[in-house]
């Protein structure tokens, strides 16, 4: 029997660190437009989030693609003493889930838990 289902890709922090912003955004949109759900171990920076939103808008078409559902946690503010002494503010992005808007629906989210519903088309 052929198993019908939804493919889910978990992308590691190491892989993401080795990619440029544009490569990340392109990968996300290509995969999501193919109906995949992506889980990124480490989230996108604010400027990468901007790029992703802009490119998503460009690629929306009436009958094929209505956009993405994306959920992440608010950026964590680093409070390492060393960073503070050096006057650095470290912003750490966190786990992110992305999928096609018509298949991924966030049910509930709070500071520490994302609960999502994935539906087959």
């Amino acid at each position: 029997m052929l198993m019908k289902g939804i493919q889910m890709d978990l992308i590691s922090e190491d892989k993401l660190d080795g990619m440029t912003s544009m490569e990340k955004v392109r990968l996300i949109l290509d995969e999501v437009k193919n109906g995949k759900i992506l889980v990124l171990e480490k989230g996108l920076t604010p400027s990468e989030q901007n790029k992703l939103i802009e490119l998503t808008m460009v690629e929306i078409t009436p009958d094929n693609f209505s956009g993405i559902e994306i959920e992440s946690y608010p950026v964590k503010h680093g409070n390492r003493l060393l960073d503070k002494l050096l006057g650095k503010t470290s912003l750490r992005t966190r786990l992110t889930v992305i999928g096609p808007a018509d298949q991924l629906k966030t049910i509930k989210k709070d500071r520490d838990m994302i609960s999502a519903l994935v539906s087959a088309q």
Partner: peptide
């Protein structure tokens, strides 16, 4: 409405950065 949306996170992240 639920405040934990990507749109809110993105705007806040931009201003913080």
């Amino acid at each position: 409405e639920d405040p934990y949306t990507q749109v809110n996170v993105t705007v806040i992240g931009n201003m913080e950065a």
